[in-house]
């Protein structure tokens, strides 16, 4: 873990020293033009927040895994598909609030994003920094919950003992991004995930690091990729050994963007869509036929 944190800090500091040398004091240094085309990058967030007064509707869909090949048309016919519908609104500059509903675990989520710093054209600010947070409520029937309450004996938790608090999960993330050239934008992020209730053999907390970016190859089309790594940290684990430790989420695809839409089609591993679910529960492995086809579609309205 320390290695990763150190890496991120060095990466950011390194950027600053490199670009500090080129700094010029101009009268007005405007933010760079569209570091990303959308606030979404596959199933992660970018540092981009649309102009204030924008309402964004997002459809995120993932099919089942491609593990059965042609039999179920590479996951399109297979069970295990997941979908999230979300609405986001930008009430003030660089602050976005959102609400969403996800099929898996009947999650209902509230989320917010605040872009604290925007990268500027003259490099007076060399990077963009955003904070992203999400609270989700697991809306399933009580009987479907695993046991996991901290009690004296390892007995199962009875459905009647499940309180509203037990359904909550939290995700918080700091995202650092930079548009390097017209065609290359990269992001690194670190996140903390907490579930109020998990099964006995799992952890309540998980720290993850995220790397993603886009490589633009035409005015409207980009190659996009994303890699989320849940870290194995003994210090915050409640287990003696790792059983079913979540697997990294690898995804790559293509983004096509227009004035009001971003359309992303990709192949990725996590079956979850909300970030805490991907960090905590993903067991699909891209090295073992774990990829599934997915799509993210956004539509913007301005008021």
């Amino acid at each position: 873990m320390k290695k990763y944190v150190l890496f991120i800090i060095l990466f950011v500091l390194g950027l600053q020293t490199v670009f500090a040398q080129e700094e010029e004091t101009k009268e007005k240094d405007k933010p760079v033009r569209s570091p990303f085309e959308s606030g979404y990058l596959i199933d992660n967030q970018t540092t981009l927040v649309p102009v204030e007064g924008t309402l964004e509707y997002v459809i995120q869909h993932k099919f089942g895994t491609m593990s059965n090949g042609m039999t179920d048309l590479y996951g399109i016919y297979s069970p295990g598909a997941n979908i999230r519908l979300g609405l986001n609104y930008v009430p003030i500059k660089n602050v976005q609030v959102g609400i969403g509903a996800t099929k898996k675990n009947k999650y209902t989520d509230l989320n917010a994003k605040w872009t604290i710093l925007e990268q500027t054209r003259e490099n007076t600010i060399p990077i963009a920094v955003s904070l992203y947070g999400m609270v989700a409520v697991d809306g399933r029937n009580e009987s479907l919950f695993g046991s996991g309450k901290i009690v004296d004996t390892k007995g199962p938790t009875l459905p009647t003992q499940i309180a509203f608090n037990d359904r909550l999960s939290y995700f918080s993330q700091i995202i650092i991004g930079r548009k390097f050239t017209d065609w290359l934008s990269l992001q690194a992020a670190a996140s903390f995930t907490h579930y109020n209730m998990v099964g006995w053999e799992y952890d309540h907390d998980k720290i993850a690091v995220h790397f993603n970016g886009r490589i633009k190859f035409s005015p409207q089309t980009s190659f996009i990729f994303n890699y989320d790594i849940p870290l194995k940290i003994k210090d915050i684990s409640e287990q003696w050994e790792w059983t079913d430790h979540p697997k990294p989420n690898l995804a790559f695809g293509v983004e096509i963007s227009t004035s009001t839409h971003a359309f992303q089609i990709y192949a990725g591993t996590a079956d979850g869509i909300i970030p805490q679910d991907m960090v905590m529960w993903n067991l699909n492995d891209w090295k073992d036929k774990g990829l599934a086809i997915g799509m993210t579609i956004t539509r913007l309205w301005n008021f």
Binding site: D182, P219, S257, T258, S259
Partner: peptide
Amino acid sequence: TKVGRMLYSKHCKS
């Protein structure tokens, strides 16, 4: 020049 071309193709071309 490049900015104009990129923005034209995003907002106007369709």
